[in-house]
Each structure stands twice: as C-alpha cells, then as structure tokens.
Nucleic acid binder design. Sequence first.
DNA 1: TTGTAAGCGTTATCAT
DNA 2: ATGATAACGCTTACAA
Lengths: 332, 332
Amino acid sequence: MGNRRLTVREIAKIAEVSVATVSRVSRGTGQVSPEMRERVLRVIEEHGYQPSQMGRALAERKHGSVAIVFPGLSGPYFSELIQGFESEVVEAGAGVHIMATHNRATADADVLALASRVDGIAVHGGTVSTETVQQLSATVPVVMLAGWPLDGIPAVRADNSAIGKLTRHLLVDHGYRKLAFVGNPGGSPDVTERWEAFLAAHRDARVAAPRNPVRLGLQQSDGVIAAGELLDGRSRPRAVVCANDETALGVLIGALGRGLSVPGDVAITGFDDVPMSSLVQPGLTTVRQPIRELGATTARLLISGVGGRGAVMDAVLATELVLRDSCGCVRA
Amino acid sequence: MGNRRLTVREIAKIAEVSVATVSRVSRGTGQVSPEMRERVLRVIEEHGYQPSQMGRALAERKHGSVAIVFPGLSGPYFSELIQGFESEVVEAGAGVHIMATHNRATADADVLALASRVDGIAVHGGTVSTETVQQLSATVPVVMLAGWPLDGIPAVRADNSAIGKLTRHLLVDHGYRKLAFVGNPGGSPDVTERWEAFLAAHRDARVAAPRNPVRLGLQQSDGVIAAGELLDGRSRPRAVVCANDETALGVLIGALGRGLSVPGDVAITGFDDVPMSSLVQPGLTTVRQPIRELGATTARLLISGVGGRGAVMDAVLATELVLRDSCGCVRA
DNA sequence: TTGTAAGCGTTATCAT
DNA sequence: ATGATAACGCTTACAA
C-alpha cells in the first residue's frame, strides 16, 4: 500500500518523450504519431500510471465531480433518487459526492463548503434555506431537486398535482367526506404542493377540508405515530391521505394493528409508488413518480452545465395515479 | 452564478499582505499578529473568500475526501451503512464519494479510477475482485467493509456466527428438522459466512442440512421469488433461514399471501434487524448487527489513516440474536 | 508531430 | 512575525 504514484514527468523520462506527449496520449487528445503513442502507452501500462486527479483538476479548473445534498437516506425514495443520480454521473466519468444534512445545525455552512469540492451541486428541496442556495449558486452551478426553480437556478421535480386527482377520487368517486392529511407542508416543497393540491380538491368538490394537516415527518415511523393520533378517537377520518408511501405504510400497519379494516373502516393513500406498496395487503393506492428519472435528469443537467443557453430551467416530470385496494377500489 | 472566486493572491493584494499570511490566517496555522489577522480576516469575510480545494489538494497532496464502494442502494441495510459512514466523514470535515457497482462490467476499472480522486476507499465485500482490491491498495489506503481482511488491508465486519446460534435454536429448541437457506454464498463474504454457520449448526445438532442454498440476491423481491420456489411444492421446509431481513420479509409476504401460517406452517428468520422486522406481523426473528456502527468504524479507520502502527486490522463487531414470533417463539 | 514552459491556487520552506 | 518563492502534478498555448 502507498507505493508513491509516478508523475507525468517520470513517465515522460522513462518513455523518453516530453510530458506534453504523455499527457496527449493519456487523455487521447491532440495529434500523436502511432509509434509515439505505442511507446508511451506501453510505459503507462507497465507502471500502472494514472494521472493525478488533483493535478488535472487544478490545470483544467474543474474537479470532475458533482454533489447531491439530501436530508437523509431514509427509505426507498432517497435510495432510488440517489441511484438515478449516481448512475448517470458515473456513466459520464465523473465522481459523486454526497451530503446528508439530517438536521445538523451546521448544514448550511457544510453545503457552502461543499462548493469548493465539486463542479456542481444538486440540492434537494427542504434541506437548506433559500438564502443559502442563492449564496451557493454564486460560486457553483446548482440544480434544485424536488424544489422550485429560483432566479437563475433550474429545478427538476415531479408533478405533485396528481394528489389533487387522488383526493378528488376519494371525495367524488368514493364519496368519502372526512379526510385527513399526514405530512408537514413546511418541511419541503413537495409536501407543500401536495397539501395545497389536497386543499384545492376539497374546494372543487365543495367539501370541508381539515383545518390542519397532521404535521409529521416522512418516515414509516411517522406514519405509525399518525395512526395513533388519527385512529383512536371516535372522530376517525374516513380516509387518510399521506404525503408519501412510507408514512402511508406506517399508517396502514397502525390501522391493521388496531383491528381496523382497510379500506372498509378507513381508506389510506400514499405518494411515490415504492415497491412495497404493491406488495402489502391491501395494495396501496398512490401516485407514481419517476424517482430514478428525477435523479438522472438532475445529474444530466448538472453535467451538461447548468445555465447554458437554451437549457431547461424547470423540468416537471409526469406522475400517474395508481389505484389499488387501499382507497376502496377493487382491483380487476 | 459563476462569479469567479478570488484567489489567495488577490486577497493578499487587497489586504496588502503576502499570500503566506493569508494562507496562515485562513487555515489558522502559524504565528500571525492580531492586527494582521484582523485585517486579513476582514478582507476574507468581505469577499467571501474560500480557499480552492484543488489548489489546496495539490499542495497538501491529499484530496480531503474518502469513498465508499457498495453494490447498490437497495434496502435499509445500505442506507444505514452509508449514513453511518457519511456522518462520521462529514464530522471530520472531509468529503464523501460514493460509487455503486451494480453489476456493471466496468466496475473494477471504475473503482480503480476512483483511487485518483480520494484519500482512501472503503470497499464493501462482494463488489470487486480480490485482485482489484490488492491492486487498489497499492495506490490508496483501503478498508474492507463487511469482508475479510487481506494482506495489509484491514476489515470491519459483523460477527456472522450468530446465525449458527439462530439455526441451533430452530433445530434444537423448536425441533424443526427440514430447514432451507435463502442467499447466495458466492455473492459476498457475509453470506458465505452465514451459510457456513448454518451448515455447522446442522453438523453440531446432527441434523441433515439442505444440500444447496436457494441462490438468490438480497432484495425483498428475491425473497418473494424464494417463496415461490420453496413453499408451493409438498416438500416445503419447516423453517426458512434467510441471509438477511429483506429477503426474509419477502418470503414472509409470499408465505402469508399463500395462506400459510407463520410460524405455524413455516418459520422464517432473517439477519440485520431492520426497522420493518419489528413492525411486521408476526415479528421477525433475526440477528441484530450494528449497521451504522459498521459504517462509522470504517470511516474512522480510513480517516485516521489505515495501516498506522497499532491500527486495528480486523474489527469484528458483535451481533445479537433477536427472538420474535416468526421462528415459533411467543413474545412475552 | 513533438517539445518547452507558463500557468492553475495552495502550502510551506527559508530568509529577513 | 512577515514575505519571497519554490514546489505540488497536470494541461496547453506556443515554438520548433
């Protein structure tokens, strides 16, 4: 371990050529005669020479890697998102930096510091303040992921309005009157939009909406907690619309654990269509969003250079209503 | 966006000091008089100067970031593992590179290329060949994560032998005779050890072990497939020992979906103790391993410099048998 | 086609 | 305590 790596100069000396030629051969640019190329290639091969990324970075003034900032790796949504991002970046030959903000007090400062390590940063909605994002984008290209576009900062996000269609389905097709919403609208742009679509659907259907959402996080455990708050009293809602599948699955577990029938006693819906949602009994009615594609699109935007003329500034990816059993529909 | 950042030299000129002084102030090393420090700090603040990571990297000959290589982000195990790793690295002020190998044909080459981007690499067992790891460690410090130590390469792993205790519990305490094992021993060191401990327990109990494992991956969907292979015929096993919780949950879903009683008709066990395992009905009997700690320990090893005198070369973290209902035990 | 040499932005050594 | 200046390893005009 730790065999000092050779430098261009050493390779050049061994191959008896100039460093320029070595560089040209190793990166495949410029004109080099076949014999030269052959000779240099042999030496490179023989000594396992790999150009130092730091030397290269400094000379080219680019790091050759991009970063993705997200709240934490809880659940399949973020796994899928990051895989989509990572695959695309690696494919392009670049490196992938990650940073989870959790609720670290230093999150904003940490993200700002990231700027000096990468060529571009994808920031997931709900992780750092708008001011920080603005500040960040003064130094490095930024793409908002699952957030709103901002000034000259492009965004890649899913069409959350489908949760309006879903709510309408519960209200109109199933005739449910008392709905609850689980999720914290202040927590992220996605949840904000979903809550608003939920409210709008109530207005359209002329049904009274709940005054407040059940403000909880997006993890399964939050769903279990929500079940405790919603299902025990006698004022139980007829349907629970959750901000994502994870919480919906938590509520489902809570409901079944209380001996309630789903959807008989209470209907439950989610958002995302994670794999588990089609496996549980009853199958979860939800909205499918192309999570992987979200990550991949963001990566492409970052790699191809944000802000280029004619670049997409707001990519809104289509979503699709997936009706299963948990809303009261019976599968074919 | 893209305001070119100022360099030490520019800051030095503005503050009317030398670059050396700026460097000393910005990194807080060396002796600087209070007035100088004050003056420089003001300029740095005013212009939002941040030293370029590439310049710094080259001068210090270290990137200031480490990488973790894993097969893919499927399921809670890898999420947890990476969070443990990431938190520890960020805490130390370094950057985190990730790389998922999936089954990419270029995985080995890609990992080798990673070496020129980071100061150290954690390689998860089962991702790249032993030769590649050896080769890699010639250039950069490496730690095997959930794999075996190798030559001068340290490892951080969990004590898989607990699955032997688990198997013994099924064989001896419950008296089950026909067990099946789901997992591909060739897929990773962890699964190899678990399969071997499973076999050893059979020998100890003088019970015939199945000739072959059900060779499948570690995802929930693989468990669902395993259920199809194991539970339909009339030679159904009395208990199914799965290489991890994810597959066990898949088998559980498959079993319940077939109208079988768990553990009445078939007992099911896992490994990991992911959150879901305590939520399902029946609760999953499993082995708890400190996943987060695995990641954190690996990160610390990498950061504090692998191979240092007296450094740990093989950290085997303790695991714990968790008996719930799915093996046939009734919870208190 | 090949080589020479000037950066790229820091840090760190060595004078002062 | 402060300042010149030489690395660090690479790319890339520009020259030959």
